[in-house]
């Protein structure tokens, strides 16, 4: 595969792939040579520092608790007897490989799993020591709110997205003037107010992905929930938006109990105070974030966590 005329413009070895010639031997491309002694962080370029220090123990209050929680899809047991506390003042991260039951567990906390026809639940979930089954479901979801993987603003204005959460049911009242203050507060808590202040009437779907996700967080915060559930909130976002949202989560934990499901272990390490590692429906290990990552007790945790550091 020699190409006449190449020598004048290009002196190195020929680029490996030009065209596919079936009869010839394929050109094997050498993998990039890495220095094995270099630290993993140098390869990924991501700092593995925490966003902030833990809050004092006095600021930590248990808000939710699951007791021997089991969830089934048909005959398939997705969550196998998990007991877990959820506290205000801490960010709880659930980590684990895909299909290990993290999201199912998260969705059961505000009874969203009940929307799945085949799903069944055993065991108990408490919100401030009250069984969630005894709380009327729309009331429960106002208290335990959720943000999803894909930013999903509703097809209405920025203002109305937040106001929708504040109004009862499908009502269009209270009127806009009466809701301006709480809407602005919610946008401010989500760190979005400065960017959208002058165009609250614009359609929410015109915002960027990161802004949309912060709008979804603002919407969830508007009704003053006690617990905020986040299902991989940054997986569809760019690094800059991710950083903004991580800082936001860390700031919110003093007012709201935060549970986050994430596949990004570095993210969990940056923001989580407590980490639960799930594997095939079991809660394998639960503990302080730093301890779980640097000194895991279980071999399965060690294997999984090690995978992320190269």
């Amino acid at each position: 595969m020699s190409l006449p005329g190449d020598q004048t413009t290009y002196s190195g070895p020929p680029p490996p792939v030009r065209r596919i010639v079936v009869s010839e031997e394929p050109t094997i491309v050498e993998p990039p040579r890495l220095d094995p002694s270099a630290p993993a962080a140098a390869v990924t370029g991501a700092p593995l520092t925490r966003r902030s220090d833990s809050l004092p123990a006095s600021a930590i209050v248990e808000r939710m608790r699951t007791e021997n929680l089991r969830l089934y899809y048909g005959d398939n047991e997705a969550v196998k007897g998990v007991s877990l506390p959820v506290c205000r003042g801490e960010v709880l991260a659930l980590i684990g490989p895909s299909g290990c039951g993290k999201t199912t567990l998260l969705r059961s906390l505000n009874r969203l799993t009940e929307l799945t026809a085949t799903a069944r639940r055993e065991g108990q979930i408490f919100l401030d020591n009250e069984d969630v089954d005894r709380i009327e479901v729309t009331q429960l979801r106002r208290r335990v709110s959720m943000v999803f993987q894909q930013p999903n603003p509703f097809p209405m204005s920025i203002f109305d997205n937040v106001a929708y959460a504040l109004r009862e049911g499908a009502n269009r009242k209270p009127r806009k003037s009466a809701l301006m203050e709480p809407v602005r507060q919610a946008l401010d808590r989500a760190g979005l107010l400065a960017e959208v202040e002058s165009n609250l009437d614009h359609p929410a779907l015109r915002l960027s992905g990161g802004q949309q996700q912060r709008l979804c967080i603002a919407r969830s915060l508007a009704a003053q929930p006690e617990v905020l559930l986040l299902d991989e909130p940054c997986s569809a976002l760019d690094p800059k938006s991710t950083e903004t949202i991580e800082q936001l989560i860390v700031k919110l934990r003093s007012e709201v109990a935060v549970v986050i499901v994430t596949h990004n272990l570095q993210q969990a390490r940056r923001i989580a105070d407590k980490v639960g590692f799930m594997y095939l429906g079991d809660l394998v290990e639960f503990g302080d974030g730093e301890q779980l990552f640097s000194n895991p007790r279980e071999a399965r945790t060690a294997d999984y966590v090690a995978g992320s550091f190269g």
Binding site: M146, F148, F154
Partner: peptide
């Protein structure tokens, strides 16, 4: 309409009917 859009409305404590009226029909 992706199902997570409906769920986002339910997660705000909205009923199915409110979701249909305010989220699905406008979409």
């Amino acid at each position: 309409i992706p199902s997570h859009v409906r769920e986002a409305s339910y997660a705000l404590g909205k009923s199915k009917w409110a979701t249909i009226q305010r989220v699905l029909l406008p979409s």
